[in-house]
């Protein structure tokens, strides 16, 4: 089956987007023969120049440019390429795509995204309510919008605590002055609010999963980061055989009727309690580990987007590892020039 799939998140850098791992999964599909259309924000996103993975790339406007600008651009790309499926991979772009899902469907472009309610209720600032509603352990957290609120966190919060951006970035602060520094740094980059979350001591573990929108888990693979970069990203990781993580994932997907890809970030304490620290409403950059372990989640996501029945994966290989590496692509200036001037490559 020939399919044209548009994918964003081609920034395969030291803090990588999920685009390239998603494409690798799709390229390995035994059911589809895919033409990949890259959607890029910046002209130096490495995926643009990976011609073995991305057939053609179009620059698209930032979500901050407004929904109309984005939809106009997608309509133009669709007129050229006849897109079957679109997979947005950035947190910041999900809102406009979720709002436009029906409109894009009418144009013939299918997606498989969380509903707006699902997207909103798992926001970092809404996590405590999410925990209460679904009976999930969440570390105490609250959104703050002014730096002076940091002085009033005690005794509700104790140091160390986490200072988080609404979309990205998280730092451990051991004192109010450190917390204020991080507040300034993160708010400058990602805006307000800033999320304060109580630090929970334990091991950080993650699950990549896919929900069918009716409460069924189609795929789920737990992982522990083995090597973490100074940006907090996994440079290597290993699949786990942890039933408690899978059980919690299934419970969350069943209770929320989660639709689409997700990443659950958890802390496992020394007494084996699991705390959810973040729910990312999209596939993570390490999703290719799940493909390597036997669950081709990008392929299953595309099948769900096309309205096909998908049998849940029941197994994966435990102890499968990934190790990232950096690689210097050599590119011709003419390619960079073409993308920079025409917005297409």
């Amino acid at each position: 089956m020939q399919l044209t799939v548009a994918v964003s998140g081609l920034n395969n850098i030291d803090s990588p987007g999920p685009g390239i791992p998603v494409i690798r999964g799709l390229r390995e599909s035994k059911e589809f023969d895919v033409k990949i259309i890259g959607l890029a924000y910046e002209n130096l996103e490495p995926g643009i120049y990976m011609h073995n993975l991305v057939d053609k790339t179009y620059q698209i406007p930032y979500p901050s440019s407004g929904m109309d600008a984005l939809l106009d651009r997608i309509a133009y790309i669709h007129a050229q390429e006849k897109l079957d499926v679109l997979i947005p991979n950035f947190d910041a772009e999900l809102f406009p795509y979720i709002k436009s899902e029906e409109l894009l469907k009418e144009m013939g472009i299918k997606m498989f995204l969380p509903t707006l309610d699902q997207f909103e209720e798992r926001h970092k600032s809404n996590l405590p309510e999410f925990g209460k509603k679904y009976g999930v352990n969440i570390p105490p957290s609250k959104p703050i919008s002014t730096i002076s609120e940091i002085d009033r966190l005690y005794p509700e919060f104790e140091f160390p605590l986490l200072v988080k951006g609404k979309f990205y970035d998280a730092y451990i602060a051991h004192s109010p002055s450190e917390a204020k520094n991080y507040f300034t740094k993160i708010s400058f980059k990602w805006g307000l609010p800033i999320i304060i979350q109580q630090f929970v001591k334990g091991t950080e573990v993650n699950v990549v999963a896919l929900g069918d929108g009716n409460g069924k888990t189609i795929a789920a693979v737990p992982m522990r980061k083995q090597y973490i970069t100074d940006k907090g990203k996994a440079w290597s990781g290993i699949t786990l055989g942890d039933e408690s993580m899978l059980k919690l994932t299934n419970e969350i997907i069943a209770a929320t009727k989660w639709r689409g890809g997700m990443e659950l970030e958890m802390i496992k304490t020394i007494d084996n309690q699991l705390f959810i620290i973040e729910i990312n409403p999209r596939l993570p950059a390490w999703v290719y580990l799940a493909v390597g372990a036997g669950q081709n989640i990008p392929e299953a996501l595309v099948k769900l987007a096309l309205g096909k029945d998908v049998e849940p994966y029941e197994n994966y290989e435990i102890g499968k590892m990934f190790i990232r590496y950096s690689y210097d692509l050599i590119c011709d200036l003419k390619e960079f020039e073409k993308l920079s001037t025409t917005g297409e490559l």
Partner: peptide
């Protein structure tokens, strides 16, 4: 019970990944 031990003396705990 779920600890894997290889003949080369390598132990893998599938629950923790250690």
């Amino acid at each position: 019970k779920n600890i894997a031990v290889s003949e080369s003396g390598f132990i893998f705990d599938p629950t923790s990944g250690e």
